[in-house]
Design a protein around this nucleic acid. Structure first.
Length: 139
DNA sequence: GCCAACGTTGGC
DNA sequence: GCCAACGTTGGC
């Protein structure tokens, strides 16, 4: 079991939109970056991820589950681009903000802090547990 | 809204 | 295969 983080601009695709898809979930489409695609290729069904709102919110707001492994992105004609499908699992009781994450030295190596532009990234288990704890949310 | 960081494209 | 120009992301 591995852990990940998915970034989205809430103005474009928000946690509420994700929740509205229910069990059926949704393609995490639109990624046009090799690094992010390569991260998605490593995902397995059942892996969990943080759903992070960028821009206006800048906070981890929910937990999602991978429900389909990488497959061609239906929004692209270019077969280089792939995506996984995810569904909402549960919201964060208290969202954990980027500010909190940046203030905590345990997270100094996270891509969220070090490589702000990477939209899909791995999260190690220690960080996963610590951030869930900060958000009062079951891991 | 600005701009720094960084990824991608294309000319050579 | 290098690198300048350009585009995009995302924090501030």
């Amino acid at each position: 079991m591995a852990y990940w983080l998915f970034k989205s601009e809430p103005e474009g695709w928000s946690w509420d939109d994700q929740v509205a898809r229910g069990e059926a979930g949704e393609e995490w489409d639109g990624v046009r970056n090799y690094q992010a695609r390569n991260v998605m290729r490593q995902m397995k069904v059942g892996d969990l991820g943080f759903f992070y709102h960028s821009q206006s919110d800048k906070a981890v707001v929910g937990i999602v589950e991978v429900i389909a492994e990488a497959h061609p992105d239906s929004t692209s004609d270019d077969d280089r681009w792939e995506c996984v499908d995810i569904r909402a699992v549960r919201p964060f009781t208290r969202p954990v903000t980027l500010e909190q994450i940046k203030a905590d030295p345990r997270f100094a190596d996270m891509a969220l802090v070090k490589n702000t532009r990477l939209s899909v990234q791995p999260v190690d288990e220690a960080a996963w547990r610590a951030i869930c704890e900060m958000g009062d949310t079951a891991p």
